[in-house]
Design a protein around this nucleic acid. Structure first.
Lengths: 136, 136
DNA sequence: AGTTGACCTTCCTATCGTGGTAAGCTTTAG
DNA sequence: CTAAAGCTTACCACGATAGGAAGGTCAACT
């Protein structure tokens, strides 16, 4: 009952582009898929699940090396949830750092934009600020 | 009185790596620098200011094409502050979009991490969530 | 049986901003 | 005069993704 599908169907079913499926195989995130006699890749249910796993992990911002670890944990019955949680918390820290950085940019830029008339006049505090040391 | 410096000094003075200075010239963000007889690039005060301008704009997250526009506006006395403000607001929107995306990741991931014991036990809601459709 | 169109294969290119490295020339300090 | 530091160009790399070209394969229709 393990229905096999070619890469196009696998892509449509999982939302991962064929391009990326091949890439994941190439860099070793996924095991090499079996092939038809003509060389077409074939995917079974378990492999489709792995592709969905990858897609969800990507949508949470995990990097490919991180996903490789997550996949390994998932397939390993001897894992400790400690390992997974640690990885997740580490990723959370990265996310928080990025948010802080973006918030800082946002604050500065919003202030500058507020001060800029945005009319025909060439005077512009945004350009002034970029041109000079941020003394203010 | 326009003191000329080579690329290493320009880099030290502006905080832009020599590598990136050459790159900006190559892609046309900066005009081609003048050269000594031996072929060394030379930078004057105005060019150093432009490098600092670029560095500050980068630190606010502006892309290089955006910076190219900002530089053009800065050097153009016929600019309208409207144009600059529009660019800044557009960039601000991008920043906000990214923040929203990261906040969403953060929320989901934080919840999952909170639910994960993080001990010797293999049970892990994080992996469960990645393995299954986000029904919850 | 033959053609057509959809699907698959591999290989190459590009993105964006940055870093690194290697081979070779120039300048400066000792 | 020599050694070190600085400069030049020309490569390669990252991360994750997309695009295209050239060619093989499969299924359906005539």
């Amino acid at each position: 009952m393990d229905k096999l599908v070619t890469i196009g169907k696998a892509s449509a079913l999982t939302g991962v582009s064929a391009k990326m499926i091949r890439y994941y195989e190439e860099i070793g995130v996924l095991k090499k898929a079996s092939r038809t006699e003509a060389g077409y890749r074939l995917y079974n249910q378990a492999q489709l699940q792995q592709l969905e796993f990858i897609r969800r992990a990507r949508s949470l911002g995990f990097s490919i090396p991180e996903i490789q670890s997550l996949l390994k944990f998932w397939l390993d019955n001897d894992r400790e949830s400690r390992q997974v949680k640690q990885l997740a918390l580490s990723h959370l820290t990265e996310i928080n750092d990025k948010i802080v950085e973006l918030e800082q940019m946002k604050t500065v830029l919003q202030k500058l934009a507020d001060q800029c008339d945005g009319d025909d006049n060439p005077d512009c505090p945004i350009l002034d600020s970029l041109a000079q040391p941020p003394s203010v």
